[in-house]
C-alpha cells in the first residue's frame, strides 16, 4: 500500500491569525494562499513544514457543525493525511483494520482529486489520491 505522509490538519478560528505565529520563522513565507473548499465548508492554507510535509490550517465555516463542535472543545490538531497511489485500496485497507469511512469528496485543495476521511475512536485519517 504505497502511501506517504502529507500533512497534519490543524483547526483554527482564523487562518491569518494562525499564520502570525510563524511570521518570524521563515515558514510563513511559503504558505499557500488560503483557499475555500465549499464542499467541506472550510478554508484551508498549507504551511510547509519541511521534508515535503505540511501543516494544513483549517478554518471551518460558521455552519460547519462538525468542525465547529471540535473547535469549541478545544481540539486543534485533529487529522493526519497521506498521499496514496491508489486511494480506494488504501481506504479498504484501513476499513479492514477497523476504521469507518467518514466521507469522501473531490477536493479543490488537491486539484479535484479524490480524498477519503476515515475515523477510529482515536484517530482521524485523510487519504488523498496522489497525482
Amino acid at each position: 500500500m504505497p502511501m506517504t505522509f502529507h500533512h497534519v490538519g490543524c483547526l483554527v478560528n482564523d487562518i491569518p491569525a494562525a499564520l502570525k505565529l510563524y511570521q518570524h520563522t521563515g515558514l510563513a513565507a511559503g504558505a499557500s494562499v488560503p483557499m475555500r473548499v465549499p464542499g467541506q465548508k472550510v478554508q484551508v492554507c498549507f504551511l510547509p513544514a519541511g521534508n515535503d510535509a505540511f501543516i494544513e490550517f483549517v478554518q471551518p465555516d460558521p455552519d460547519n457543525a462538525f468542525l465547529q463542535r471540535m473547535l469549541r472543545k478545544g481540539i486543534s490538531y485533529y487529522h493526519v493525511a497521506y498521499l496514496c497511489s491508489d486511494v480506494e485500496t488504501c481506504a479498504g485497507d484501513f476499513v479492514r483494520s477497523g476504521a469507518h469511512e467518514l466521507n469522501r469528496f473531490h477536493s479543490e485543495a488537491f486539484g479535484g482529486r479524490l480524498c477519503v476521511f476515515l475515523t477510529t475512536p482515536e484517530q482521524l485519517i485523510e487519504l488523498i489520491q496522489a497525482a
Binding site: 457543525a65 477497523g98 469507518h100 469511512e101 466521507n103 475515523t119 477510529t120 482515536e122
Partner: peptide, 21 residues
C-alpha cells in the same frame, strides 16, 4: 445535527464506550 458524518462519529463513540465492533 444527526447527519451522515455525525452518524459515523456516534458509531465510533459507541464502539469505544462499549468495547465492541
Amino acid at each position: 445535527g444527526w447527519d451522515s458524518i455525525t452518524h459515523v462519529l456516534l458509531v465510533v463513540a459507541v464502539e469505544k464506550k462499549f468495547r465492541i465492533k
